[in-house]
Every structure is written in C-alpha cells, then in structure tokens.
Design a protein around this nucleic acid. Structure first.
Length: 280
DNA sequence: CATTCCGCCTGTAAGC
DNA sequence: TGCTTACAGGCGGAAT
C-alpha cells in the first residue's frame, strides 16, 4: 500500500496530535518484519518529540525518560509495508487479529494495523545511527528536496540498463515512488516504462522529475490512494485512485488518446502505460 | 558494480 | 460450493 503520499498523509494526520504525548504502555502482537529491538517497557515514560519522514519510513523521535538517571533519547522507525496503517484513537478498543503494535499515550492509542506484517517498528538510538541509520542508509534523495533535479536524475541513471520504471522503484536515486506513482509519473512524462534508465535524455529527465513531484504532491493533497484499506490516522481514506491515469486501468481507454491501457510485468510488479502516449 | 530473484505474510478475487 | 492459483501498495539480501 503505502508509498510516499500515504506515509506523508499519515504523518501529517499524527504529528500535531501526538507531539508531547507520553507513552504509558506498549503492546506487541504477532512479529512484524523486524523485531522491536528494545524492551517494550523501556519506551514507557518517553515523550514524542516529533514525527518526521524519510522515504516511506516514519521516525518518531522520543525523549529520554525523566525518571531514569542519565537516560538517552532515541526513537522508533516505523514502516507500513504493503498493508499497514496507523490509527490514533481515544477509544482504546481491544486489539484485532491484525493489530501488531500499540502505543498507549497521553493523547490516545496509536495502533499499527498490518495484515501482511511486512511493516515494522524498530527502536534506534537516533535516526542517523543504529538500526534506523542502517535502514535509511543508501536511500535516494527526497523528491521534494531541492537536490532532486533533472541533472541529478540524469547522472544517477547514466550507464544503467534497467528499465526506468524499475529504477524509479528501486529508491536509490529518488525515494518514495512506489508501484502506483511510478506508472503515473511515467505517463505524465510521456516515457515508456521499459526504456533503459541510461537512455533517458536530460530533457526527458526534466519532464520526469517534474512528473514525479507533480504526481506525489497531488496525491498528498488528495489524502493518498485508498485501493483497499489505506486510512490516515483518523480513519480518512484517500482519493487519488480516482485520478489515476493508467494504474489498474488495463484495457480501458487512455484518458489522452483513447488507446487501451496496457499492463506488463517488470520485476514481478505490474506496470501500466499507454503504448501510444509513452515513447522510448 | 548492476541486475535478477526470492522470501517475508495474509487476504481477496478469479479460474476451474 | 469448494479447491487452487494468481496477485496485491515494499524491500532487504542472496544469487547471478
């Protein structure tokens, strides 16, 4: 599920309400992708200082415990995997079979629901070191940072024979573009998803970088895509899926030219594109 | 180094 | 109706 827009929408729906919240209890369900990496009880008494995002990861910065001498701050790195979502509620409902991580806080119950359990919550002493530093190392540039330029995209694609769709998904050049938004951005840029990355001209990198920014910002503005179960922390679904030009539209007419949208498989993932509007 | 493939899980929908 | 298969928003790591 969650690509950058869904993760950012989740962050935005949480950050104001959760800042300064104090953790009073932790509950673990079934194992997630990685172990928590600390004693659950060691989170009790910590306050949420801030929530930031890097790629599709969320970093919950947590303060030191007031009642522990010389205690160190740290934080939790959360990932929503394919099917995860976070919910903040004052209802404190009993956990369901898909609820695998709860933080009881002074501002409500923060709950990670994740049927497939590809998500994770991992303790780390800081965002840049320890477990979080390891997971975030090697990530590409943020798409909304000034550093994400056509020149950078062009340079990082140079010599790569992998299809541009897969290069976008890999996340080592630019982060946050998942399977939905990769197809959508390539449609907007008019680029055939099968084009080898290194064969994309600088001029087309300009269009592609713009398309990535445009698609992701539009998706954030619409609350993300809710294909099945994505919700923000207050239970609100997104609406971008209604604006998708090619994703999940196999056989339907291209919104620009009427040609049927094609579905192909690249790296075991579906890609959707218009064979007339998108060229190598 | 670049690229491909596997595996992690479970739910849902399609096919027989 | 019931069983089997394919596929789903991600990503790290092993194999090639």
């Amino acid at each position: 599920m969650p690509e950058l827009p869904e993760v950012e929408v989740t962050r935005l729906s949480l950050v104001d309400r959760l800042r300064d919240a104090e953790i009073s209890a932790v509950r673990l369900g079934k194992p997630l992708r990685w172990p928590l990496g600390c004693e659950p009880a060691s989170l009790i008494g910590r306050r949420v200082l801030d929530i930031s995002r890097r790629g599709k990861y969320l970093w919950f910065a947590l303060g030191a415990r007031a009642d522990v001498a010389a205690d160190a701050a740290g934080g939790l790195l959360l990932h929503l995997g394919m099917s995860g979502s976070l919910n903040l509620s004052e209802q404190f409902a009993a956990p369901g079979p898909w609820d695998h991580f709860d933080l009881v806080t002074s501002r409500g119950l923060l709950r990670l629901t994740d049927p497939r359990r590809f998500g994770a919550a991992v303790w780390s002493p800081s965002r840049d070191d320890g477990a979080a530093g390891k997971l975030l190392a090697g990530l590409g540039v943020e798409p909304f940072d000034a550093g994400f330029t056509a020149v950078l995209l062009h340079e990082r694609l140079r010599g790569r024979r992998v299809a541009i769709k897969q290069a976008l998904l890999a996340g080592d050049i630019v982060v946050g573009v998942g399977n939905i938004y990769a197809s959508e951005a390539l449609f907007l840029a008019g680029i055939d998803p099968r084009t080898p990355g290194g064969r994309i001209s600088l001029a087309r990198c300009v269009r592609l970088a713009d398309a990535v920014r445009q698609v992701l910002s539009r998706a954030v503005a619409l609350g993300g895509s809710t294909l099945r179960d994505f919700r923000d922390a207050h239970g609100m679904g997104g609406a971008f899926q209604h604006e998708a030009r090619v994703y999940d539209r196999e056989g339907q007419p291209c919104v620009a030219c009427g040609e049927p949208v094609r579905r192909i498989v690249q790296g075991q993932r579906s890609t959707y594109f218009c064979p007339r509007c998108q060229r190598r």
